[in-house]
Design a protein around this nucleic acid. Structure first.
Length: 580
RNA sequence: CGGGGUGUAGCUCAGUUUGGCUAGAGUGCAUGACUGGGGGUCAUGAGGUCGCAGGUUCAAGUCCUGUCACCCCGACCA
């Protein structure tokens, strides 16, 4: 590749609308340009990176025996109605009506499509297990695209779907995928941690997330202080808190708290700490209403609620429902007498452990104090359950071990789906006994663009990106520093030798000053730079520099290409070799 | 969707408070000269419906109304 003939529009200044480093550098290095909020044009260097990540993913998928297919991006809405995900996915599901009045969906993921295929093509257990995948564009109408490529509306995902006749087979493929994912991320040269995740509304029984630790990540990872276990915050379990010492509590007392519906307002008004409050959160789940009680300083965890509801879709109740149910404006719901009003109540352990608290009075502008859990509202019964339903916070433990927190970027996730989709779409097969059974499914996703963004987040310095050789747009850049004939000739020769050796090399043949070329090479993060300059050339040497190291060395001009090609091979091999 | 912010040259931004002559700088781009190992110097030049629409005014980038786009925070309110 010749730099002068390639579109690599690097820029000196930081683009005004890019906040985080990966976004800034991907724009500055000329990898991509924004078309609209959350959609990006990938330019030649960015495209090369996508291609390289894609190739690694494809190789590792194929190695497990998974087969690549292509699913349409535009899919009939009807198919999504059959699984109910047209509703559950909500507004994030991009839709349009075509000229015939048919509803269409822009595929944000493809369980429906793959299950449709399986329903039609899989007849017998003899065809199983089968694992199909695709690598293509996904569209999600995100409520708020941000952080450049990290949360975009359009992105490239590898999604695989496996089909099985029994749990054992599902587990086997699940672990194959799990291991393939480890290899993918190792080969891409990104550090990752694997955390237990909630399968949530995807349904199913098990899930792991592959997360790149990074301060700008949107996901919160919780791990034990011995580093033995890790979860997504959605999943992280917490030990129940010790029951507080009983206090002499008088009878419930109603207090006037005008317009103080929020925790902070109530606290300010009554001079309390948030931890002394009991929050009552009303949800709807189908026709049922579900109340969740958590301490004022805690957050309810919707994923934990989903699990308690067996994967059923739920929402926060709207204002009208809350008013109708509690007889009070939003902000004044409380647990006392709530049993008669809602279908279920989940009480967080931390609330049950409170000796006494303050809660909404189910009466607009009033709260009640001296509320004793167990005395003033039940902690057991048909409708009531004391459970773990909040997010872990600083100071929490699990099995006695202190929980720690860090942020991460989710780059992959594997799920056991069970029969949620196959049941709804009639994907079954005949078993050995001649009887039909629903297929069991797994699904497995990798965000291609996010791998690149995470690599940049964790690999950069003041001069630009520092990329792993496996995903850098080029492995080597040859930089003639000067336009004298001998320099150009020597550079061209080495360039040709590297090409012949199968190295992905770009020669910076622009008529520019050395400084300009060095800056751009650094910005692009190309792992190896070979510079041909007047001084070293006179001594029969060329200069060698690793992007990741500050110092330079020289190589004899006659053997330079060969040595560099070997080095490239070594660097790649190091990433390919599975870690201990 | 709620809150905040920004839209002026390809990019980064002044100018808007207090309306007033031909709308500016740096950078990038083009041409030429010098230069040539860390975004070099000088000269010349091209490049703008001041986001869009309407209004006020003798006069609008500047004031008013509306609208669109983009960015940030939040969306679990109790």
């Amino acid at each position: 590749m010749r730099y002068s003939q390639t579109l690599i529009p690097t820029v000196k200044e930081v683009p005004a609308d890019a906040e985080i480093i990966s976004h800034q550098l991907m724009l500055r290095a000329g990898l991509m340009r924004k078309l609209a909020s959350g959609t990006y044009i990938y330019l030649p260097a960015g495209q090369r990176m996508l291609d390289k990540v894609t190739r690694i993913v494809r190789e590792e998928m194929n190695r497990t025996g998974a087969q690549e297919i292509t699913m349409p991006v535009v899919q009939p809405l009807e198919l999504w109605q059959k699984t109910g995900r047209d509703v559950d996915y909500g507004e994030t599901l991009g839709q349009f009506t075509d000229r015939h009045g048919r509803g269409n969906v822009l595929s944000p993921t493809a369980e429906e499509g793959f299950t449709f295929l399986a329903a039609n093509e899989i007849k017998s257990y003899k065809q199983l297990p089968m694992n199909l995948y695709q690598i293509n564009t996904k569209y999600r109408d995100e409520f708020r695209p941000r952080f450049g490529v990290l949360r975009s509306r359009e992105f490239i995902m590898k999604d695989a779907y496996s089909f099985h006749v029994d749990e054992e087979s599902l587990h086997e493929t699940y672990m194959d995928m799990y291991n393939a994912y480890c290899r993918v991320f190792e080969r891409c040269g990104v550090e990752y941690v694997i955390v237990l995740a909630e399968s949530g509304e995807m349904g199913g029984s098990g899930s792991h997330q592959f997360t790149v630790p990074c301060a700008n990540g949107e996901d919160v990872i919780v791990y034990t202080d011995d580093d033995k276990e890790a979860w997504n915050i959605e999943k992280a379990p917490v030990d129940p808190l010790a029951k507080q010492d009983a206090v002499e509590a008088g009878p419930i007392e109603e207090v006037h708290t005008p317009r103080a519906g929020k925790v902070e307002d109530v606290c300010a008004f009554l001079k309390l700490e948030p931890g002394q409050l009991i929050k009552t959160l009303i949800h709807t789940c189908g026709d049922e209403t579900v109340a969740v009680l958590v301490r004022g300083d805690h957050e309810a965890n919707p994923e934990k609620l989903t699990r308690l509801l067996d994967g059923a879709h739920h929402d926060m109740a709207d204002e009208a429902t809350v008013v109708k149910l509690t007889g009070a404006a939003v902000g004044f719901a409380g647990p006392v007498g709530l049993c008669d009003k809602v279908d279920r109540i989940y009480v967080d352990h931390a609330v049950a452990a409170m000796a006494v608290g303050t809660a909404g009075a189910n009466k607009t502008d009033y709260h009640i104090t001296n509320v004793v859990p167990g005395r003033d509202f039940p902690l057991e019964g048909d409708k009531v359950q004391v459970v773990d339903i909040r997010n872990a916070v600083d100071g929490d433990t699990y099995e006695g071990k202190t929980l720690l927190f860090k942020r991460g970027i989710e780059v992959g996730q594997v799920f056991k789906l069970g029969d949620k989709y196959s049941k709804k779409l009639g994907a079954n097969c005949l078993g050995e006994d001649g009887k039909p059974r629903d297929l069991l499914m797994g699904c497995y996703g990798i965000g291609i663009n996010r791998i690149i963004a995470s690599a940049v987040e964790n690999g950069h310095d003041d001069n630009g990106m520092i990329l792993p050789i496996s995903i850098a747009p080029w492995e080597v850049i040859v930089t003639p520093a000067g336009k004298e004939y001998e320099i150009v000739e020597a550079a061209e020769k080495i360039y040709q030798q590297l090409l012949d050796a199968g190295v992905e090399v770009i020669i910076d043949d622009r008529n520019a000053r050395g400084g300009v070329k060095f800056k751009d090479a650094d910005l692009l993060g190309i792992p190896i730079r070979v510079t041909i300059g007047k001084k070293s050339l006179a001594e029969g040497q060329v200069e060698f520099k690793l992007r990741s190291e500050p110092d330079r060395s020289t190589l004899p001009i006659d053997t330079a290409a060969k040595q560099v090609a070997e080095m490239v091979r070594d660097m790649k091999a190091k990433l390919e070799r599975p870690k201990e």
